[in-house]
């Protein structure tokens, strides 16, 4: 991907602060009917790190991600961005939802979709446009700016959603099952895009996924959630560094080992 020359405006994206949850619990409902979903979680995402959160479906992965995004308030415990406690969504943390087809606004062209959160920040029109174009370039969509979301394929729409998060000056990208509804080849491309953006921009990424192969391929650390209420049952370090390859990395003995260990923890 020849995107390096388009990224000058994006250089300040480099993550500076860790994003962490401390003793986080989350319950839905109140009183005797309350359901505890997450129990006493401690997860820390270092700057420039990719952390994947895996676990059986319905375990509360999305709840945790929404807490990290500031979209849900924890019942107890806190979400910390650097030294500050988050009480709502913040500039530095951007979310890419699973349902890309619904998170892009259908009445806006792609470039406007990417740049319109910047309007809320009071950025001028020319600057917004330039930044939006750079971010679309960075995700490999240099020609999509004038198209409407429905003119893009699923993979392209998800790229546009990533571009929007980048444009918003997110140092931390939170992705909820980001590639669950695209075909296998597109999924590999998007995984490599995430690795590329992490390396090039220095951002941190949190990916919630149910796909263990994807988690091991992307992550520096995989956090395994399990149980009711969910708690961290394992944290698996993945030793592949920043440069990975869909074929070679997945053939490494360490890949198979990490995969087997995570699968074992989830099954139990």
């Amino acid at each position: 991907m020849t995107t390096a020359e388009h990224l000058d405006l994006l250089d300040e994206r480099r993550a500076r602060h860790p994003l962490a949850v401390k003793g986080l619990s989350k319950s839905y409902g109140e009183g005797s009917t309350a359901v505890r979903v997450l129990e006493d979680l401690d997860v820390r995402v270092e700057p420039n790190e990719i952390v994947c959160i895996v676990g059986p479906s319905g375990v509360g992965k999305t709840t945790l991600l929404r807490c990290l995004a500031g979209l849900l308030a924890p019942t107890t415990g806190a979400v910390m961005f650097g030294p500050t406690t988050m009480t709502g969504p913040i500039l530095e943390v951007g979310v890419v939802f699973q349902d890309y087809s619904r998170s892009l606004l259908p009445w806006m062209r792609t470039r406007e979709n990417v740049s319109f959160p910047l309007q809320g920040k009071g950025m001028r029109k020319a600057a917004r446009r330039a930044l939006a174009d750079q971010c679309l370039n960075a995700v490999g969509l240099p020609d999509a700016g004038r198209k409407y979301p429905w003119q893009l394929s699923g993979g392209m729409q998800q790229r546009a959603a990533i571009a929007r998060a980048l444009a918003y000056q997110s140092e931390v990208l939170l992705m909820d099952e980001p590639f669950a509804s695209v075909d296998a080849q597109t999924r590999f491309d998007l995984e490599d895009l995430v690795l590329h953006l992490r390396k090039r921009l220095g951002i941190s990424v949190v990916v919630v996924t149910h796909d263990i192969d994807e988690a091991v391929y992307l992550a520096d650390r995989v956090v395994v959630l399990s149980g009711h209420p969910a708690h961290v049952v394992d944290v698996v370090e993945v030793p592949f560094g920043q440069d990975r390859d869909q074929i070679q990395t997945k053939a490494e003995p360490a890949f198979t080992e990490a995969r087997a260990r995570i699968l074992g923890r989830i099954r139990r």
Binding site: L91, V95, F97, D99, S103, F116, P117, Y168
Partner: peptide, 16 residues
């Protein structure tokens, strides 16, 4: 709801 979350996540001010 996904659009509502998106708008909230990107802190879009009320008038916009």
């Amino acid at each position: 709801p996904v659009i509502a979350d998106t708008v909230r996540g990107y802190r879009i001010p009320p008038l916009l």
